[in-house]
C-alpha cells in the first residue's frame, strides 16, 4: 500500500514538472520563467526525497539539501541580473 502511495506521489510531482516545463517554454515574461524554474527545483527536491524513501536509504538528503541551496542561489542571481544588470555590484 505504501508503494502505491509512493508511485502516486511520483506521478503527481512528475506531472507537475511537465507543467513547469510548459510554462518555461511559453512563458510570456522573464518573471514567469524564473518562477517556473524555482518551482521545478522544489519539485525535484520532493522527487529526490521520495526516491530516498523508495530505496529506503538516507543518502539522498544531502543531494536534496544541495539542490535546495543551489536552487535558491540561482533564482536570486537570475532575479538580480534582470533587476540590476549585474549580480555582484
Amino acid at each position: 500500500m505504501m508503494t502505491a502511495a509512493l508511485f502516486f506521489a511520483f506521478g503527481c510531482f512528475g506531472l507537475g514538472l511537465l507543467f513547469n516545463l510548459w510554462r518555461i517554454a511559453t512563458g510570456p515574461d522573464a518573471a514567469d520563467r524564473i518562477l517556473a524554474l524555482d518551482t521545478m527545483v522544489i519539485n525535484v527536491i520532493a522527487m529526490l526525497i521520495l526516491y530516498g524513501i523508495y530505496r529506503s536509504t538516507a543518502m539522498y538528503y544531502e543531494a536534496a539539501m544541495l539542490v535546495a541551496m543551489v536552487g535558491f542561489v540561482s533564482t536570486v542571481a537570475y532575479c538580480r541580473f534582470v533587476l540590476r544588470g549585474d549580480i555582484i555590484e
Binding site: M2, L6, A9, C12, F19, N20, D29, A46
Partner: peptide, 29 residues
C-alpha cells in the same frame, strides 16, 4: 505514511497546475 504521501502529491500537483492555469503573472506567483 500513505496519507501524508497522497496529500503531498495532491498539493504539489495543484501548485504546478496553478502555474499553468492562472491568467496573470502576479496571480501565477
Amino acid at each position: 505514511i500513505s496519507f501524508f504521501l497522497i496529500v503531498a502529491g495532491i498539493f504539489g500537483l495543484v501548485g504546478s497546475f496553478g502555474l499553468l492555469k492562472l491568467r496573470d503573472s502576479m496571480q501565477r506567483l
